[in-house]
Amino acid sequence: MTRRRAITLGAQAGAFLVAVALLTVLPHWLGDFRASQVAYVGIYFIAIMGLNILTGYTGQISLGHGAFMAIGGYTTAIMVGHHNVRDLWTIPLAGLVAGGAGLLFGVPALRLSGLYLALATFAIAVALPAVLKKFDHFTGGTQGIQLFGRPGFTGKGYENVHVLGQTLTFNNWLYYLTWTVAAVLFLIAWLVLGGRMGRTFRAIRDSEIAATSSGVNLPLYKTLAFGLSAFYAGVAGSLFALATTFVNPDTFPIILSLYLLIGAVISGLGSLWGIAAGALFIQYVPDLASKYVSKAPGAPSVAYAVILIIVVLLLPFGLTGLIRKSARPLTDRLFRGHNQ
């Protein structure tokens, strides 16, 4: 292992441990309401991670990841709301169902590239709410599915939750649940993307032709990226359903898919280390815009758009682009020092 690689790995492991420690103690300073907001940040974190695997690492743009979140969310809602299944068990299941859908969609998606693929995924996200409304036998139609108070729903949405000898408010429970899942999925993504599979994904992104000629099974890996990415989105959707205690077709609107891509670009595509920035952006910037700019109808959207455009103009490669750029001279120096 080169010294440069060791430094990078050490810095990354350190950053991960510091983040875990911070997230563990954070609820002591957050109120109950803020804890639920940061729980949503965790959910967006997971979804953006998934989108990044597909768009950032493999180069396939998806404008429809909200649809995979919806599949995960509805899986959980139907099992908990209609069949009284314990909610925690539905989280991995929701991921698997969404991941399966992702694999299925990944096969025809092989024929599409670039913006055609982006528009095809966008079409899925656009069409899904109408389909959910039409097949109301399973989905409850526009009424949606209520989880609040269901026996399989931890704490039923209002009681305190007892876990590992601790008593938590429902919102703190959500906080620890989402961030625990997020941390586990982050470690998995780190291991998977840092290894052979991640290298293959990046090879596909940089040049499909070169990847093929080096013996990469293109259809296999592109579909796999779709499935893995949708798995993450499905888990995020499941947690989203638990956090809102309710799903209906408007829980996963088209704009959610767009927000996820915005979050992924602001995080920086092709890296896992800026994702918190994108998740925070999705959760807080719209609120900040209405709180500090103007509450007049429409004005917060204008402020949000201006902030978004300025951020993207200043950081066209996202936060990790900035980190890389500012870290490069330093690491280069360290590397050269070692050689001399």
């Binding site: 891509l261 915005i262 992924a264 670009v265 004005a299 204008v302 978004l308 455009i309 993207v312 103009l313």
Partner: peptide, 16 residues
């Protein structure tokens, strides 16, 4: 993707 994000920003901003 970056340019797409800019146009989405324009969409949100003009609508608002």
């Amino acid at each position: 993707v970056t340019v797409v994000i800019i146009t989405i920003g324009l969409l949100i901003g003009l609508n608002g």
